[in-house]
Design a binder for these strands. Structure first.
Length: 949
DNA sequence: AAGTATGTCATTTTT
DNA sequence: TGACATACTT
């Protein structure tokens, strides 16, 4: 038996990229089950929900495939599996013992936006006090005026962002003399001020009965260590848990480790009730210290190193430390490159637990693989350089995949979907998008926050929506609840329970002063909406509600300006207010939909950040912009953990920082993490790795090697510097190769996200003027808008129900609830809601009894819901969204739902009318998946299905 | 109206 | 160090 499966031993595994980490974790879990552990007594902890879902999935699929006996035995208990994120675990702990902890069991978790709002308020409260009582920052505030306020707010927020470390810092005051950082009265005063802000913040949260994300960890730790009830809580935990497994252990921060530490301390010390019973509880930690890339959110590599070292001390013969050596992911060339490179630059010889040591691993895959570096001459890190580079990458992609026919030999011709471009940041994303689009290369941008969902943009969208339609209760509700108007929950509840069905009327008639002033603020805007440009009204609204101050961060200002620009653009096209609103609604929907697009099986090049790529793998990986050096963190505040004690330093002068211990340490840690980030990027590649970047000679004719290029130069001396000043391709593993841009195919696919976010990231698609135009498929067909308002809303409700069912978000048994929730969101009037409910449920009942429900609607492998596409055909570019695609037996079946009532005789004629629409859908799907297609219309109210093509 | 000087700020993202 | 915006010249 493989050693790490031994259920009597605690294990810590250092599992490098591609060594089958999840597989090992799952096997361990199963071996614990097989050795007789009860499923509900095994606790597995991950850091993201996605990771938790993947692990559960993997365990169940192995069990179903290989261990049918076991599967049969535990089948009923599967819902009891405890595979959760650390935060969910903490939250459960807190709520379960809320009363013991002196908390309200119904405690709510603040979202980030609200938490920040509350924090800013707290700082202002504290600063006001400071000014009124002439505290030690009084002079500072008086001298520098408003600038001083925002500077202090920035500094205090920087400290605040280092939570939960900051809290330990406060708890540890006054600090002992520290050789790294001599005592500094200014720092102490600043911390004192921070302490006051923090106290106000805590109090505000207490009054609201909420906690924030940081509190979850801190409170959980307190619950099991410094609370009078700690022993009881630990005892209860112990009773319910025999084994703990932790995934991605290198991403653990100190608080999280302390939680796990406290929970398992008894086990490790060889004591405890379990041992007395003859049970051996175990800990199983898996991670790769070289993939620790989340320092900026508190992850601490030293934890992994320290635990690794002390594991044996704790457990003696019951402990196993395993270093996985095999790599199942990459071809030999890539592994050879990785071993040479990181063997050189990752070496923690000294006493620095935040550094990592690289030990080589060995390939298991047969074949060769290829690693290339493409250099071109250019100025470093300018927009021009990145645009050129994007062109180069696009050309290379065409030469790799442009013919579209997958070749037999790996690396010769691949699918677009095999290629991934990994970026360090999103700054130059636009350049890459433009390049791929102009070359008709299908691509998907994975991850990132949608512009329209940023809180400030979302709010302004609602403002526009409200102006377009003042009886839109939802928009008004959002406005009133927002920090710009700021009605309290209680007042809002009162308003909603009012008799009027129109919220705005209730607001007008309300006696409360806050409501009056809200009404007086909003009412004039409605009257003026007809004459005054929308962008001016929005700006005025922001000024009158102090919106610019609420959204004070630079990025938010930029977003607001961008939004104003978009609105301005619409107005130039002389669009009416309702039309603008419609467009905004569309753009939001496109954002919602992005989660539904299954990027994995979409044949499109993926673009994502290195951070986002963690845990994934791709046959071909592009790593552009290797000459870029990320700007080092410029903050005047530095909080860090040294030898298990939190340290704090504050220095306004940037050049002074280079001399101070804590700042030097931070810089060194950042440099180390930069290496690890490069490691993660490189190890995503399975068959082929292509790195690109610009080089330029300096005034003395020397090549300046910067960024990740310096890593390559160190381990392969001369590889970069000897090729100065000439564009060229070379392969580190040997032969040279030249990229030849190929011809462009006539179809271009993009996700709607990319399409609608054009105003945000990219310029318009450059097309020969006057020759082409964007056409909505339904627009070209000329249907879809004749239906009454009732049916267009009902139609969208139906579609959302179907989408929910297909995506698995709505279970057939839970249909009534889901429908109810959907209607509640869209319809306020009780009568209308009741009517809609009746129609939808009646139709759904009929549908469920038909074969179509199982065949089309239910989730299925190789199926897509609300699939967006863009198709060029002649001089028109069609865009649209396909209700459902199911690929079975090599045929892609395209379904379009028509939800309005249809008489028996009408169906055939209607189907003929929609023929063109469906034919476009089929063509797009055919190009996208490369399969034969069939097109169907499903009249859902009958229900009846007609094959159209 | 166009050109010039000055100032400010930069990445990664989960719960 | 460079991109971008704003303020100030000519």
């Amino acid at each position: 038996m493989t050693a790490y499966l031994d259920p009597a031993k605690s294990v810590i595994i250092s599992a490098p990229a591609g060594s089958g980490k999840t597989e090992k974790l799952s096997r361990r879990y199963l071996s614990l089950l097989e050795s007789g552990s009860e499923i509900e007594k095994i606790l597995a902890i991950t850091f993201t929900e996605k990771a938790a879902a993947e692990m559960k999935d993997r365990i169940l699929s192995i069990m179903r495939r290989e261990k049918t006996g076991l599967f049969g035995k535990v089948r009923e208990k599967i819902p009891l599996m405890r595979i959760t994120t650390i935060h969910a675990f903490c939250r459960k702990l807190i709520t379960r013992f809320a009363l013991d902890l002196g908390l309200n069991p119904a405690v709510d978790v603040l979202d980030e936006f609200k938490a920040r709002q509350l924090w800013t308020e707290s700082v202002y409260d504290a600063l006001r006090e400071e000014r009124e009582n002439a505290g030690c920052f009084f002079e500072y505030l008086r001298h520098k005026g408003i600038k001083g306020w925002s500077a202090l707010l920035g500094t205090l927020t920087a400290i605040h962002q280092k939570r939960p470390y900051t809290e330990f810092l406060l708890a540890g005051l006054p600090t002992k003399p520290d050789p790294l950082q001599p005592a500094n009265p200014e720092e102490e005063q600043l911390l004192e001020l921070y302490r006051r802000c923090f106290r106000i913040y805590q109090e505000k949260k207490r009054i609201l009965g909420t906690i924030d994300f940081n509190d979850m960890e801190v409170l959980a730790l307190r619950a099991i260590t410094s609370n009078p009830q700690s022993l009881n809580i630990l005892y209860a935990f112990d009773e319910h848990t025999d084994h703990i497994l932790v995934d991605e252990f290198q991403d653990t921060n100190s608080v999280q480790w302390r939680i796990i530490d406290a929970l398992t301390e008894e086990w490790r010390s060889g004591l405890g009730a379990k041992r007395a019973e003859g049970k051996t509880p175990t800990v199983f930690l898996v991670g790769d210290e070289k993939q620790s890339i989340y320092m900026f959110r508190g992850a601490n590599v030293s934890v992994f190193q320290e635990v690794k070292q002390r594991f044996r001390e704790w457990l003696g013969g019951e402990a196993l430390y395993i270093e996985a050596k095999e790599n199942y992911r990459s071809l030999p060339a890539i592994i050879h490159f990785t071993n040479t490179l990181f063997g050189h630059i990752m070496d923690a010889s000294g006493d620095e637990p935040w550094k990592t040591t690289y030990s080589g691993f060995s390939p298991t895959r047969q074949g060769e693989g290829k690693v290339e570096v493409i250099l071109f001459e250019g100025r470093e890190n300018s927009k021009m350089t990145r645009t050129r580079e994007a062109e180069l990458v696009a050309g290379k992609i065409i030469s790799l995949a442009g013919r579209g026919t997958p070749g037999p030999a790996a690396g010769q011709h691949c699918r677009y979907g095999d290629i991934c471009i990994l970026l360090r940041n999103r700054t130059h994303l636009a350049s890459f998008e433009t390049a791929l689009r102009t070359h008709d290369i299908p691509y998907v941008v994975v991850g990132g926050i949608g512009f329209y969902d940023e809180p400030e943009v979302a709010l302004l969208r609602e403002f526009v929506s409200f102006l377009a339609d003042p009886v839109d209760n939802f928009s008004l509700f959002v406005l009133l609840r927002s920090p710009l108007v700021g009605l309290s929950e209680a007042v809002l509840r009162d308003l909603l329970s009012g008799r009027e069905s129109i919220l705005f009327d209730t607001l007008r008639d309300s006696a409360a002063a806050v409501c009056r002033s809200a009404f007086e603020l909003l009412e004039p805007f409605i009257a003026r909406a007809a004459g005054v440009p929308l962008s001016i009204l929005i700006e005025e609204f922001l000024t009158r509600t102090a919106g610019w101050e609420v959204f004070w961060e630079r990025q938010r200002h930029a977003n607001i300006k961008k939004f104003l620009g978009i609105i301005g653009g619409y107005e130039e096209q002389a669009l009416s207010l309702p039309e603008i609103r419609e467009l905004l609604v569309l753009s939001r929907k496109s954002n919602e939909a992005k989660a539904n697009v299954n990027t994995e099986s979409l044949d499109a090049v993926k673009i994502m950040t290195v951070h986002g790529s963690k845990g994934l793998q791709f046959p071909v990986v592009f790593l552009p912009s290797l000459d870029e050096t990320p700007p080092s963190k410029a903050g005047a505040v530095c909080i860090d953990e040294v030898n298990n004690a939190v340290r704090f330093a504050y220095e306004e002068e940037a050049c002074e920082r280079t001399k101070q211990g804590l700042f030097i340490l931070r810089k060194a840690k950042e440099a180390e993490e930069e290496k690890r980030l490069f490691y993660v990027a490189v190890t995503r590649a399975m068959d082929r790795l292509i790195m690109t970047g610009a080089v330029k000679n300096d005034c003395k004719g020397q090549t300046r090697v910067r960024g990740a290029f310096s890593f390559i130069e160190q381990s392969f001396p001369g590889s970069i510097s000897e090729r100065k000043g000439r564009d060229g391709v070379f392969s580190i593993t040997g032969e040279a190769e030249l990229a030849t841009p190929g011809g462009a195919p006539g179809v271009s696919f993009s996700t709607e996200k990319a399409f609608f976010q054009e105003p945000v990231y990219t310029e318009k698609v450059p097309l020969p003027p006057g020759t082409e135009s964007w056409v909505d498929v339904t627009e070209a067909v000329g249907h879809g808008k004749k239906k009454s308002a009732d049916w267009s809303l009902l139609g969208s409700l139906f579609h959302r129900v179907f989408e929910g069912i297909s995506a698995g978000g709505i279970l057939p048994g839970d249909l009534e609830h889901a429908v109810e929730a959907l209607i509640r969101k869209e319809v306020q009037a009780e009568k209308t809601a009741a009517r809609y409910r009746e129609i939808i449920l009646a139709d759904m009942r009929k549908l469920r009894n038909s074969p179509f429900f199982d065949e089309i609607l239910l989730p299925a492998a190789n199926s897509y819901t609300e699939l967006p596409f863009v198709l060029r055909k002649g001089s028109a570019i069609f865009r649209g969204r396909i209700d459902r695609v199911v690929i079975r037996d090599g045929i892609a079946r395209v379904y379009d739902y028509k939800t309005f009532p249809v008489r028996e005789k009408e169906a055939g004629a209607l189907a003929r009318q929609y023929r063109f629409q469906i034919s476009i859908y089929c063509e797009a799907v055919g190009k996208l998946f490369g399969t034969r297609t069939k097109g169907f219309i499903l009249f859902t109210s009958r229900p009846e299905m007609i094959e159209v093509i």
